[in-house]
Every structure is written in structure tokens, then in C-alpha cells.
Amino acid sequence: MAAQIKYADVEVGTELPAASFPVTRATLVQYAGASGDFNPIHWNEKFAKEVGLPDVIAHGMFTMAEAIRVVTDWVGDPGAVVEYGVRFTKPVVVPNDDRGGLIEVTAKVAAKLDDNRVRVDLTAMSAGQKVLGMSRAVVALA
């Protein structure tokens, strides 16, 4: 592991650089192909509405993949991530327009653990709603 952030340089409350991730219908089609998850709720508006959704929604695993980028961009080496967990609380709705949806992610150090590890708590919002809950990562720092 080769994290670029030193354990000694962070404290509880240290904020990681925030980031926003746009998601369009094209993004979801590409993610479906790469992940093998072809559930039509992620690309077929008619189907999504028939099963009671407001519109096409992003794959929960896509949102989970974007949120951890705030952590991996911070530490440099994604191999430093020791644990990562989320609860899917609300869907990320992706309208069929030029802009699509936006996932806004903030994160801060919530605890300093043994062995140069820290717990980072993440917040992911879309359209003013919290889309991930209990979103936490444990990262090994230098």
C-alpha cells in the first residue's frame, strides 16, 4: 500500500476534497455494459415507471463507485481502502435531458484507528436528497 496522506497529518474532522459526479443515460448504459447489470430500471423509462419509480435511476453500485473516488483520489492508492460499506437510501434519478443527474459527495475523517488506519464518513447527495446512508470507509494511511 502506498497512501500519499500521512496518518500524523490528519485529525478527526479533517475534510477530504469534495467532488461532484454527473450521471446521464449514456453513463448508465456504459456502466451496465461494464458491470453486467442490465436491469431495465437503469435504462428503460417505461419499465422504470411501470414498477413505480419516478424515472430511470442510477445503479446503486454506480453511486457507490463514485462516492469512494473522493477517498481514493485523496489517498492516491485505491489499494489503501481496507473496508467500504453503504446503505442505499434513495435512488439517484436520471432524467432524459442534456444534464441528467448529479451525485455530490463530501467526506471527513470520523475516527483515527490503530495501525495508521482512519475511518472516513461519506455523504452522497442527489437532487437535495441523501442517496447513501451509513457510508463509511476504513483507509490505511502512510
Binding site: 457507490m64 485505491p78 481502502v81 481496507v82 473496508e83 460499506g85 453503504v86 446503505r87 442505499f88
Partner: peptide, 11 residues
């Protein structure tokens, strides 16, 4: 999908 968690020994 309700929750998802991973614990890594290595990447």
C-alpha cells in the same frame, strides 16, 4: 439492493 459492504485483505 439494501446495503453493500466490502472488507479487503488486498485489492
Amino acid at each position: 439492493h439494501g446495503d453493500q459492504k466490502f472488507a479487503y485483505s488486498r485489492p
